[in-house]
Simulated scan of single mutants.
Amino acid sequence: MGESIAAKTIIERLLQLKPDLNIVVTTTTPTGAKQIIEGLGSKVTHHYSPCDLPGTIKRFTRRIQPGALVIMETELWPNWLHHLKSRDIPVILANARMSEKSAQKYLKFSTLSQQMMKAFKLVLPVNDKDAQRFIRLGVNPNQCVTTGNIKFDQQFTCNGDESYFHGWEGDSKTLVWLAASTHKGEDEILLKAHQQVLQSLPDAKLIIVPRHPERFDEVSNLVAGLGFTYHRRSQPDAWNEQNQVMVGDSMGELMLAYKLTDIAFVGGSLVPIGGHNMIEPASLGKPVLSGPHVHNFSEVYRELVGQEGAKTVATVGEISEAVISLMVDEQKRQLMGQKAQAVVEHSRGALEKTVNQLEPFL
């Protein structure tokens, strides 16, 4: 999914420059396909990626007749690379990532790795450390240009009614934390953490936004079953500023919720989903909390944690402790949010650098 988000950002910019560009996008997972199909629609042609077998690759490329292949991040398939190199079709690796752990694995098969790396006409790493690893594996240094991470160049809009909290925002003393894009297995942990928060801060509020609409009723029942006073975003008759929890069961308002809350927990990370887009709250200057499962956005999260704009929390106690600590210390809360926002602002610009490098191949 992460690769699809980055690819979509590049494709949108390329189509602005060349509206008639014929782009075929392949993905390997349904979630990645959904990102492309819903985000780009008929602007591109989508296929699931063929298996990395010589005959399959030959038949696929014969039908597509590509002028160039842009691979996202770390999808390195030997037969793809060998066949396109043999046909002198340029291959570019964009938003390229290579961890030290992965580099060590490739070094165990140095002959194959060098053959693969020499297939690239251009490698565009997200940072200098990744660039050095690609060069160590066999990429020509003259064909390795650090561009930064495209994911930081996403643009977000805050749609919706500014009175999202329905009474909570009227009291400057009321602090609200958001549990965004939660999955099954996470809601109870987060709600139990809020119970502990309320023991120390009785006026604290929680907004919990399930990732999937089909779980709105399930999560609402869980909130009620744990004894919270609550209301749902979609049911104005139940809105009450004294309620302890709101279930965010509206669509298209997550960025608004991020904007209006004080602390953001990004879901899909307490269970092995891989995490969701923490750039969204960070771009708004919110302190970011996340569980340990962040492989969809590992490099982004690593930057945020490294600059103290995000914190990993894995248990009920760790979550409640982090929320309480940030709620009682306004300076700490604002500083952490500023650091998160600074990471995003400092990291912008990769998209234009990447597109400039791609243009000669179009």
Rank of each mutant, 00 (worst) to 15 (best):
V247W: 14
M246F: 02
E241F: 06
I263F: 11
E280N: 06
L206Y: 01
M278V: 04
E188K: 06
P210C: 09
E188G: 01
Q242A: 14
Q242I: 10
V223P: 00
M251S: 01
E280H: 02
M255N: 14
V247C: 14
M255T: 09
G185D: 00
L226C: 03
D237P: 00
E253M: 03
F216S: 09
A238R: 14
Q242G: 07
Q195K: 15
V271G: 07
F216I: 10
S269F: 02
I208S: 05
L260P: 01
A224Y: 12
A204V: 06
T261V: 14
L206H: 08
A193K: 13
G225C: 12
R233Q: 12
L191F: 05
S283K: 12
E253G: 02
V288F: 12
L190M: 13
Y258C: 01
M246P: 00
L190H: 10
F265C: 07
L191T: 02
N277I: 13
H276W: 08
I189T: 04
I208G: 04
E241H: 07
N240T: 04
A204F: 00
P213L: 05
D249R: 13
Q235S: 06
V197A: 15
G275K: 04
A193P: 11
A193T: 10
I273C: 01
A224C: 05
D262V: 07
L198Q: 15
S250M: 03
T261D: 05
F228S: 15
V223Q: 04
M255C: 06
P272V: 00
S269Q: 09
R211P: 04
D249W: 08
H276Y: 10
V266I: 15
V219R: 08
L198V: 15
L284N: 10
P272N: 10
K192M: 13
G227N: 10
L254D: 03
G252V: 09
R232G: 04
M278N: 03
H194A: 12
S290W: 01
G225A: 14
A193G: 08
